[in-house]
Write a protein that binds this DNA or RNA. Structure first.
Lengths: 139, 139
DNA sequence: TATTGTTATACTCTATAACTATA
DNA sequence: TATAGTTATAGAGTATAACAATA
C-alpha cells in the first residue's frame, strides 16, 4: 500500500472533527432509547444475524474483557442480547441480538445515520462523489 | 437550506461508520497519554488561546454541568487546564489550557489525526477533493 | 500451560437533586 | 427570580488482578 499522501492529513483531520462532534451527539441520542453510549456501541457492533464472541466484542470496543461482562450483563437483563456457549470451544460465549434487540438497534442506526442538514450543501452529484470516495477509504 | 438530498444517507452512514471506529480507537490512544476518552474530548474542545466557559464545555460534550465539574477538577489537578472567574459575570468560570495542557493537546491531536493507511487508496487529487467536500459539510 | 470469560476492587464518568453565589 | 457552577449521591463504564472452566 502507498503512503497516505499529501492531503491525507487534511482529510483525516476533518474526519476526526466529524467523529468528535458525532461523539458529542451520541449521549442525547442514546438517552432517547434509554441506552448509554457504550451500549449503543455494543448494539452497533452486533449486526443482526451475526454471532459475536465476547472477546471479539472487546476487541471491537478496544476495552478489557472484564468490562464486556458488565455491558453484556445489563443488555442481557434488558432482553436486547443473549449469550450462549459456543459449540466448538466451550470457553467462548457468543452474543446475538434478540428480536427486541434487533428492533432497538434498527432505531438506533436509523437515528444515528439521519444525515445532518449540512450535507444538503452538496449537490446530489457531489454527495454521490463523497460516497464513492469514502467507500474506497473504508474498503 | 435545502433538504439533505438523495445520497446524503449513504454518505452520512459511512461517516457514522468512520465515527464509530474512531470511537473505538480513542481508548488506546488516550491511554498512551494517561488520559481518559472523556478527558481527550475536553482537551480537543479547548483550543489553545481560547477561553471556554464551563457551561459551553458542557454543551460541546452534551453532558450535565455537574459532570464537567469533575472532569475539570481532575484535569486541573494534573495541571493541564486552569479555571478562572469571568470578569464580566462572576458566576461564570472560564477554562484555558496551561502550557503543559497545550503540549498534551498537541500530542493528542497529532496522534488522533495521523491518517490511516487506507487514505492512501485515494490519489492526491481525490484526497484534495475529499477535503473540499468535507470542508463544505463542516461549514 | 494457555486462553475465555467472570469476580472483586477501585477509580472515572455520568445524571439528578439540592445547594451557593451571582445576576 | 433565574442562572453558573458545586456538592452529594447513586449507578454505569473501565482497568487490574485473581480466579474458574476449558483447551
Amino acid at each position: 500500500m502507498k503512503r497516505p499522501g499529501p492531503h491525507a492529513c487534511d482529510a483525516w483531520q476533518m474526519l476526526v472533527q466529524i467523529s468528535m462532534s458525532h461523539r458529542a451527539s451520541l449521549p442525547p441520542l442514546a438517552s432517547e432509547l434509554a441506552l448509554s453510549p457504550a451500549q449503543c456501541h455494543v448494539l452497533h457492533v452486533l449486526e443482526p444475524g451475526r454471532a459475536v464472541p465476547m472477546g471479539e466484542l472487546a476487541g471491537a470496543l478496544s476495552c478489557d474483557a472484564s468490562n464486556v461482562t458488565g455491558l453484556v450483563d445489563r443488555l442481557e437483563t434488558r432482553g436486547l442480547i443473549k449469550r450462549q456457549p459456543s459449540a466448538e470451544d466451550r470457553r467462548v460465549k457468543v452474543l446475538t441480538l434478540t428480536p427486541a434487540g434487533a428492533r432497538v438497534r434498527a432505531q438506533l442506526v436509523a437515528r444515528m445515520t439521519a444525515p445532518p442538514m449540512t450535507l444538503g450543501r452538496l449537490s446530489p452529484e457531489e454527495q454521490q462523489l463523497l460516497v464513492t470516495l469514502l467507500r474506497r477509504v473504508l474498503e
